[in-house]
Deep mutational scan, measured.
Amino acid sequence: TYYTVKSGDTLNKIAAQYGVSVANLRSWSGISGDLIFVGQKLIVKKG
């Protein structure tokens, strides 16, 4: 599943919304830090 980052989103908010960890969200999407951008597509795998 892809999630497109919206204004005001954080990795914590997105992870909580999908019931996954921030570490997994980073790993799946190839992100090393906490910086995400509006319009960026993140990969989300539901448990």
Rank of each mutant, 00 (worst) to 15 (best):
T1F: 15
T1K: 11
T1A: 11
T1W: 15
T1D: 12
Y2F: 12
Y2P: 07
Y3C: 04
Y3K: 01
Y3Q: 01
Y3I: 08
Y3T: 03
T4C: 11
T4I: 15
V5K: 01
V5S: 02
V5Q: 01
K6T: 08
S7I: 15
S7C: 13
G8D: 07
G8R: 04
D9R: 01
D9L: 02
D9P: 00
T10G: 02
L11G: 00
L11F: 06
N12F: 14
N12D: 15
K13S: 15
K13G: 13
K13I: 10
I14Y: 00
I14P: 00
A15H: 01
A15W: 04
A15K: 01
A15T: 02
A16C: 12
A16T: 11
A16K: 12
Q17A: 13
Q17M: 15
Q17I: 13
Q17H: 11
Y18S: 04
Y18L: 14
Y18V: 09
Y18N: 07
G19D: 09
V20M: 08
V20F: 04
S21R: 05
S21P: 07
V22N: 03
V22C: 08
V22A: 08
V22G: 03
A23E: 15
A23R: 09
A23P: 08
N24G: 06
N24V: 12
N24L: 13
L25M: 06
L25Y: 00
L25P: 00
R26I: 13
R26W: 05
R26Q: 12
R26C: 12
R26M: 13
S27K: 14
S27T: 12
W28R: 03
S29M: 05
S29K: 02
G30I: 05
I31F: 09
I31W: 06
S32E: 15
S32F: 11
S32L: 11
S32K: 12
S32C: 12
G33E: 09
G33T: 10
D34G: 08
D34C: 10
D34R: 06
L35A: 14
L35R: 12
L35M: 13
I36G: 01
I36R: 00
I36E: 02
I36V: 09
F37Q: 10
F37L: 09
F37A: 09
V38F: 05
V38Y: 05
G39P: 00
G39A: 03
Q40S: 05
K41W: 07
K41Y: 07
K41H: 10
K41G: 06
K41F: 08
L42I: 12
L42M: 07
L42T: 01
L42E: 00
I43W: 11
I43M: 12
I43P: 05
V44P: 02
K45Q: 12
K45Y: 15
K45S: 14
K45F: 14
K46N: 13
K46M: 15
G47E: 14
G47S: 13
G47Y: 12
